[in-house]
Each structure stands twice: as structure tokens, then as C-alpha cells.
Design a binder for these strands. Sequence first.
DNA 1: TCTCGATATGAAGAAGCATTCATAACGATT
DNA 2: AATCGTTATGAATGCTTCTTCATATCGAGA
Lengths: 124, 124
Amino acid sequence: MKLKNKGSHQKVLLNYKVWLSSITGNGVVGETEYSLLKHIVKSQSLKAASDDLGISYRKAWGDLKKAEELLGYQLLDRKRGGKSGGTSEVTNRALKLIEAYEALQQTFDEKVETAFNEFRDKIK
Amino acid sequence: MKLKNKGSHQKVLLNYKVWLSSITGNGVVGETEYSLLKHIVKSQSLKAASDDLGISYRKAWGDLKKAEELLGYQLLDRKRGGKSGGTSEVTNRALKLIEAYEALQQTFDEKVETAFNEFRDKIK
DNA sequence: TCTCGATATGAAGAAGCATTCATAACGATT
DNA sequence: AATCGTTATGAATGCTTCTTCATATCGAGA
């Protein structure tokens, strides 16, 4: 077999992902939900958050709804109507979740650094 | 808002994934590629491996091809024809990759246990 | 009370990914 | 040389997921 760019392969990166789910895989708390919540903390708006992240409102709304179903508690306090049209505020429990998720990522980030170095040595 | 199964949410699980890619995300070495290689070590057959894993030969073949392009070296030594129709043998570099990947997973597995426990405490 | 913009949600359309189909090349064995 | 099963690969089909569209609800402020 002939490989394209023989010997001049692109830089190889290590990726990882962490997320929560039910056993059936239904309902998820991952990067998307985390990012949405982070943005909503600042903007008090699910719409603004989804726009910022470049994902559809429909998906953002559905994702957070599923996450709430998975966790069994609300992540947002929603308000409809008013001059602004409405707001979505992040609940206290959601704030805790954000912090915990960040700590988790932190832990993984640290581990990844060393693990990847070891990995590269091994495949050399 | 009303949540289904208020208070009786399903058990929440922590999931994670580790994989290699190029910057563009093109070409991947992850669980699928790892599993394929593991099976091919035993069977010397890409077809048998894909059947075992329950994925199409077309995908298995394409995935490993992309992985080879990403890494810049061959993962399989392919033979066509012969009484058996052909064989695919895992190269030495691929063997190293398998080992390294297993060690990587091992490292993460250990870390996940404690990280998740800390996580659960935090969101309580 | 009318308006305006965000939340809420079903439904249809588009995009991405995997399976299936179809077809060719290959070569040790018969 | 004819066969058989695997590798090899494009093309069509199917499935899953996201985006778009369409429509409704809500309520503070004009």
C-alpha cells in the first residue's frame, strides 16, 4: 500500500471528552451543556448563548432539557415575556455542576499532558 | 417547569473517551481502531474483525486507512489472494500503538474512579 | 391593550455518518 | 486455468442528528 505524504504526516493530537449520561446513554451533560450554562450565566439568555456557540436554539433548548431530565433537577430558571422577551437564569445546583465539571476537566487536562508524553515515547 | 420522574432520576454515569487526531480532526485513532487491531492480531483478517465488532467492512477498512494516513505509517500488512482469500497482519508499529493505547486507557481508568467520586461530592 | 423578543415545541428539511450493494483485483490451491 | 474468500473502493441507500421553519405562549413596558 502507498500512503499519501509518506513520512510527512500531520501533527498528531491527543483528544479526550468527559460527559455524564444515563445507562441507556439518554440525556447527556457534556461540553455543549457546560458551554451553554457558562454563557447563560453571563447573558441570562438561552438564545444568546446558542447564538454565541453557533448552535441552533432548538438544539440548545433540547440538550438542556434532556440534561435536566437526566439529573432530575432544573439547571435553568426560565421566565417568559416582559420587555426583554424573557430570561433564563442558571440555578444554584447548575452552578455547582459547572464548578464540578471544570474541576473534572482540570484533573483530566493535567493527566492528559503527562499521559500523552508517555504515549508518544512508547510509540516511537 | 415540570420534570418527569421528579426526584427519581436514573443513575448518572461518567463517560470518557480518548483518541488521536490531526488538527483538522481528520483521521482518527480511537476505540474502534484499537478494537479492530486487537481482533486482527488474533484473526489476521480485517473482515473477521469487522464482523466480530459488528461494524461494516467498508467502515473498518476506511477507518484504518484514515488512521494510517494520520500516523504516516502502515498499521496492517495486507495480502490479497491465496487459499484464504487474503490476510491482514498487524505491523510492529501497530503493536506498539496498541500497547501504548492500552496504557493510556489504564492511566485514565484509574484517574476516572477518583475524579468521579470527587465530582459527585461536589454536585451534592 | 398592543407590541416585542425570548421561551417552548412539533415538524420538515439538510447534513453527516454508517450500512449495503456492486464490482474488481488478487493469488495459493485444486 | 478455474475457484474461492479476502482485500479494495465507488456509489447508493439508510439512519441519526442538527438546522430551519412555523407557530404558540408569555408578560413588562409603551
